[in-house]
Structures are given as C-alpha cells and as structure tokens.
Design a protein around this nucleic acid. Structure first.
Lengths: 122, 122
DNA sequence: TTGACATATTCCTATATGGGTATATGATTG
DNA sequence: CAATCATATACCCATATAGGAATATGTCAA
C-alpha cells in the first residue's frame, strides 16, 4: 500500500538515470569505447564505490552492459536505451532550429494556397 | 560548508526538471500552445497545487515562461531551454540510427584510402 | 594457501523531493 | 466591501538518493 511517493527512482527510466551529471560523464567516456571500472575511476576522479553505484543505476535502465574479463568487469555503452530521450526532446527542436523556420515558411505557404483553392471559411 | 549532497535539485538544470514524467506531460500540453494553470489541471487530472509546483520547477530552469492575464497566469513553452538535452543525447544517435551506419561505411572507406595513400603503420 | 587486485555492497547521514491538505495572495465581480 | 475565482505557498510525511567509509566477494599471482 503505497501512500507516499517522494520522487521517482533513478532506476525508473533513462530520463532519471541520466539526470545525474556524473552518470552522463560516465556515458561520455564509454562513448569512446568499453572500459573497466578502474579506468572510469581514474578518468572521472571519483571514488570507486561511487562509480560502481552509478554503473549499477545505468545497468538497471539498460544504458550500459557488463562483460567479465578476468577479475575486472568491462562496461560498454548501449546507446539504444537513450532513444526515448532523443525521441521526446526531438519534438521540441522546432524551438531553436533554423531548419524548422524554413519548414514553417513552406507550411504557411501551402496553407495559403489551400485557402485560395476553395473558399472554405473557418 | 556543504558536507552532504543527497541528490541534485530538480531546479539544477533541464535534465533534472524533465526527469519527472508529470513535467514532461505539462510540456507536451504546452507544446500545443500557451495555457492557463487551470487548463493544465483539467487536462492532466492533477491537483492544482501539484501543477503549480511543477510549473515552478519548469520556470526556474527556464523551460516555461509566465504571462499574467487578469487573475490567471498563462504559461508558455520555451523549448530553447531543452536544447542542452538534445545536444547531449544527439551524440548517441549513432547507436540506433541507420543513417549513421551508412556514415560509418563512408568513414571506413575514407580511412582505407588514406592508409593506402601513405604507408603509415599504426 | 596467502596476499594483492578489482568491484560490488552495506551502513550512515543530510537532503531534496512529490503528493495531500490547508491557507495565503491577488484580481474580479456584485 | 464581501464573495468568488485563479494561483501560489506552507506544512507534513515517507522515500530515494549521493557521497564517504568500511567490508564483502571473487580472481589471479607467488
């Protein structure tokens, strides 16, 4: 019986997982190729447990995969899990992209011609 | 003297603000045009205070603007504030877009020709 | 087997919520 | 001015962190 909901879990979805700057940094490093945990620890200057914890979150939402190699675990990016974010934010691209301004011109143009065609009011 | 950092504030940046599903819903509605608070309350089926609180968060990160009109406040989308998210996630598009597969083919091709040109090993 | 290495987990603590409810603030109308 | 409408805030409560430190788990080398 859940009565209170404080805040969505970071493991709820990619949006939450990626809201943390450190985790975005981790992904940015992994974008350059798979890496064992210690490499990430060194490159990010974080403590090892923190990195492991962030990796766990990223794992749970499927943004990264792990592969065991001897005593180390090599993490690899799975960018596909970020697609929902891209798909969502893409719809707002109109707000800043010049490309869409051009598109708008075309659409307005089409609309005018349409209205000229049939005298449909409203 | 800050010793503990629980979790980044939702008002820290657009990433955090948008991590909350309700807030994305609000933005999706506002994408259809500016709306007074009560319209959002009705369309989202949330309590008015919750909507106002979410709007405040969105305001603080600049994703929405307010305009006073009589006794109501009309909220308007400012998609430009979402550009950082788009810019970041765009770099991962390679993972799922076919377009980039084609691009990769071209790049590999260029690389080969380059290597054939001068006998530079490694 | 023992010790060094590489990671993951567990505890502890302060904090930032998000929903629910009640209330404050402001504008509009009678 | 009083009543009403539209919003924003203030409080209370339970929860999910994120970092720090210590410890557990597993693997490899001597």
């Amino acid at each position: 019986m859940i009565a209170f909901m404080a805040r969505a879990a970071t493991t709820a979805d990619a949006f939450n997982a990626v809201a943390e700057p450190r985790r975005r940094q981790i992904l940015d490093v992994l974008a350059g190729g798979e890496r064992p945990v210690n490499d990430l620890v060194r490159q990010l200057g974080l403590a090892q447990p923190q990195v492991s914890k962030h990796l766990r979150v990223l794992r749970e939402v499927g943004v990264v995969n792990v592969r065991e190699e001897g005593r180390m675990r090599v993490y690899r990016l799975n960018g596909h899990a970020l697609k929902p974010i891209h798909d969502w934010v893409k719809n707002y691209e109109r707000s800043w992209s010049d490309r869409f301004d051009q598109l708008d011109v075309v659409l307005v143009d089409l609309r005018q011609k349409e209205e000229e065609g049939d005298g449909n009011d409203e």
